[in-house]
Nucleic acid binder design. Sequence first.
DNA 1: CTGTTAGCGCATTCAG
DNA 2: CTGAATGCGCTAACAG
Lengths: 373, 373
Amino acid sequence: MAEKINIQDIARLANVSTGTVSRALNNKPDVNPETRERILRIVEEQGYVPSSTAIGLVSGRSRLISVLVPALTWPLVSELMLKVAEIVEASSYEIVLYSISSSNHLRDCGKVIDRILATRMTAGLLAIFPGQSAQHLTQLQRHSFPVVLVDDQNPPIEGIPWIGADNRGGAYEATRYLIGLGHQRIACIQGPMKYKVSNDRYQGYKDALQEAGIPLDPALVLEGDFMPVGGNKCARTLLTLPKAERPTAIFAQSDLMAYGVMSAASEFGLSIPKDISLVGFDDNPSSAHMQPALTTIQQPFGAMGQQAIELLLQLIEQPRLYYQGPYENKRQILSEHAPRIQLPTSLMIRDTCRKLPKRVSHTSYRHKQAMSG
Amino acid sequence: MAEKINIQDIARLANVSTGTVSRALNNKPDVNPETRERILRIVEEQGYVPSSTAIGLVSGRSRLISVLVPALTWPLVSELMLKVAEIVEASSYEIVLYSISSSNHLRDCGKVIDRILATRMTAGLLAIFPGQSAQHLTQLQRHSFPVVLVDDQNPPIEGIPWIGADNRGGAYEATRYLIGLGHQRIACIQGPMKYKVSNDRYQGYKDALQEAGIPLDPALVLEGDFMPVGGNKCARTLLTLPKAERPTAIFAQSDLMAYGVMSAASEFGLSIPKDISLVGFDDNPSSAHMQPALTTIQQPFGAMGQQAIELLLQLIEQPRLYYQGPYENKRQILSEHAPRIQLPTSLMIRDTCRKLPKRVSHTSYRHKQAMSG
DNA sequence: CTGTTAGCGCATTCAG
DNA sequence: CTGAATGCGCTAACAG
């Protein structure tokens, strides 16, 4: 059935030339409706599918899209890819996956990008959280190879469309939520400050503090590593502080670090949220199943994936023109400037935060503890 | 630099024919070493990369490999894919990703497989945990299209190479570990029994019980859904049992269900591992960060991915011949039968299991509890 | 050793 | 409206 059958076979079976078959298949207007129907019927019968390789060769265009992903073990990327895959499969394109794993670092990534560019096997590139490899992307841009970047580590690159989460807004919301609960001494466990994302979240944290008129205490701002161990280490430092200086709430810039905070708390015999309130960032799938379930900021990964791939597809078909606004409504003003799209996060309220009594003083805290004990 | 430059340009620049250039590029023996070097130099200078599309067309072979993945949100798949991607990138092949997400169920998956087969755009298919879609795979097999299946839900399919984890052995090890700790009343929270994996793990559980001469108590064997909610529900049933009938340990057939058990325990005011010991299965990345860290059976996803993709690559290049034994050592006897490779799991001992005192009786248990309370 | 030629499967002219 | 011819970039077979 699926034995190598080509356009000539169809042409023979339909008593027409290959040209006509080709026209019929590509919905060209100038073809006899009767003939077209007959051809399509035979195509259906024979289960004929045009060779995408040949089409690629003759048309010079590819139906393949490169997607560059970081270590897939990061659960967040999965969510994003899910949406990307869904949309690509609904189109006539396919995804070619390139992963920058632990072994092939910066240098190898450059090679991958060179190959993408040189072979032109794919029609465009979606780079997802490429980390340091982002710098190689300008090279593609120079050759007017369509690229869309989903990132949070690097400052935006001139000329490259960029999709990201509103990290500053998310951090602001997290901190404001804690303030609304009555917390005044709120610690911030940061990611590595060399990353843009860490700075953005720090800004959001400061925004909320400033808005509430709470002075920023540098002793409560610690730099972690986005990983559980770093979160744990920072939390230990915070919990070692004298009671009066100790934070009543912690904003961890990643869920993984929040996990570390939770383990540190239990090591100190402290209970969350009774003794310490905690908010994370990311909303990893497992965060909802922690004990207690982690209150956190959810990143809009699905939406980011969707925006990114839709933008890329549009870029491939309409080079150098960017639609502003939602993709569905294409009658938007076109722009020649690479868009920067920032998607809103959302606060997931769960069980790691506790409302503080009106007046928070050392004595009233101990009093309450004694009553419950 | 990377402007469309082809083999003719190189031929012109090197003052040779395209045939010679092609020969030089493909390391054919019959080409003047001097000429070859000159050509290679020019190729390097010009940054020429042969069009894989054209090569694909003329050679009839593809350098693309289809990889069919289930909902990527499942963290386990990421680990597997990581290894697959690493190996593919080291080869001359690329990965084309197809995902069977929530939206496109069984029917759409059939379409995907039809397309893979019809276009022959890719040279082979690696199907990872395809679930119910596995049945479509026989179609590929019939057309002698190389397929390798990584699965645990379905019984093996005749003629299709199969890679899986030793689920029975893993469950046996988990249960034996609990028995070794002195537990006698060990519950088993199963996955859906329509899946092979659930039956395999149940067998392993029974094996260990039988070996230790412990009678199987049907009241302690409950069917879950592999998800946290199911684990929680089953655990509630178990914890509602009268003290004497209540299990002292629970073997959950998935980590996610183990999370559900943990939350159920805390709802019942029970502490893990003090009151109940718990072992999971899978070793999700987050399991090590649970409070307490979950003792579980680790699935060899990396190894599974590696075996699977190496087998597929070999199948593509040596159709209908399967190497038996490790890939590295290729001088193995070849077989015409599709191999079934089962990879060993490993027990990750962490903090959710407790050694029971020598004699386990209702009274001594309460005595100990009273002493610690 | 090397140049020439004939396709791979298709879309796209250019004539009818 | 349609058939025939050209060529996409490359490899392979065949002559030199």
